[in-house]
Design a protein around this nucleic acid. Structure first.
Lengths: 235, 235
DNA sequence: CGACGACTTGACGTGTTTCAAACGAGGTGG
DNA sequence: CCACCTCGTTTGAAACACGTCAAGTCGTCG
């Protein structure tokens, strides 16, 4: 992925899908720290289609990203095609931050997405001058660490039911509504996140529905009907 | 775990095993950055017996640790007793660093160990004044993140053979000798690290021996006889 | 309406777990 | 010095959860 000049009004990336729509930024995105507002001030918005590549594993980590709309998955492929999804990034999430020089994962838009792009060097230079920004960068990495650690426990020690329950509770905890959510990702994405197959994920969804733990008005919409049952599964 | 005063020559922790042996520090420990030498200058050495608790999940993360001798496991327990080991910390490794206020894992000595203990506040204060120290703290967290990410892939997408191969290659890469290693941890520890049972780990070791990929002079000593075969398994 | 992709469901196969027993090395006491 | 314990490890047999292969359903879009 490349950006010629941030000031440019429109640019295509190497694959031709991404487009800088505007340096003018939306105002309604929730942002907590100073970092988040910095990103919004100095970043450029780009749009990506469904399955559009945002960056690839091994590429230079020259940019940092923030989801304005849509959703993103970061993942790694084994050489025989097995895929492990590392994280789903929803609206407001910052991703692509690396301490090293290159990305350890690939990133793709799950749905058509608008992504804020910020040059890493600008941020690092800022961090060197302002201790609180440096601290926020550390905190961001630490949060990512915590997330992966919790995924690690799910992958290492939980059965299919528990994995799906953990996933649903994680998603519910990250979205506005407490008991109803619209999943942006496919069953295959969920499977590759939870270390299962698509069939096992699908079967587990229907089992949870039969156990009255959830409702599935559509395949992507989930209503948490019995959060206690899910939490119990969450071990 | 508690230390009354770093200057004190000898102190017992709440369980009675740990002992501050001396504020005088060994000089031969390999250390890379400034941080590592700082730890050695201002830290106090404590000894822990096999299975001695260094800190528990949820305790205040007031100290940072460095392994002088021995080995450490950090882990989390699910409420029904299932255990996921997060990492093994060998001589020279720093562990227990958290961005937040409390530990997310428990830490225990795998073998009798000597551990350097440093007050977190001292380090944080130092980092606030010296940008390079702050940067090293970030790097430390980032390395831990990378490690957990690679474990995540192992747990999510690899079979038993591949998991054990990944483990052996990881261990071999972290110890001095290229093709022979003494494992400090039990089969149960390995199982709880790789998300397998002790029986599956044991069987996989003997299968790898039968395939001439490794030799097992004793159950804890492993000779890598065919690194290529192991790497191929590492996907 | 037909085609396509996403999802679900079924039947069967298998890798890993579970349960159980035996083995081996190290330590203690007679 | 040998018998005997203990604890970690290995091995075996059977059960089971999840994967694989395959067919069918549903929703969407041209």
């Amino acid at each position: 992925m490349q950006i010629q000049t941030v000031a440019q009004s429109s640019v295509l990336n190497s694959r031709g899908y991404a487009r800088v729509t505007s340096p003018v930024l939306p105002k309604k995105i929730p942002s907590k720290g100073k970092l988040s507002s910095i990103l919004e001030m100095i970043g450029a918005a780009m749009t990506f289609p469904r399955n559009g590549e945002i960056y690839g594993e091994g590429e230079a980590a020259d940019y940092i990203y923030k989801v304005i709309s849509g959703a993103v998955r970061t993942y790694k492929l084994l050489d025989d095609g097995r895929r492990q999804i590392n994280a789903f990034h929803l609206v407001g999430d910052v991703f692509g931050l690396e301490a090293g020089v290159e990305h350890h994962f690939s990133a793709e838009a799950i749905a058509p997405s608008s992504i804020l792009v910020i040059k890493r060097t600008v941020l690092i230079a800022l961090a060197a001058r302002q201790g609180d920004v440096a601290n926020e960068l550390w905190t961001l990495t630490a949060r990512e660490l915590e997330h992966v650690q919790s995924l690690m426990i799910t992958l290492g020690r939980k059965n299919a039911h528990e994995r799906v329950a953990a996933f649903l509770l994680e998603m519910a905890g990250r979205t506005a509504s407490k008991h109803s959510l619209e999943l942006p990702m496919s069953r295959q994405d969920i499977a590759d996140y939870l270390g299962l197959t698509i069939e096992t994920v699908s079967r587990t969804f229907t089992q949870l529905e039969n156990e009255l733990a959830i409702e599935l008005p559509t395949s992507r919409r989930v209503v948490l009907r019995n959060r206690g049952a899910l939490s119990r599964l969450n071990a």
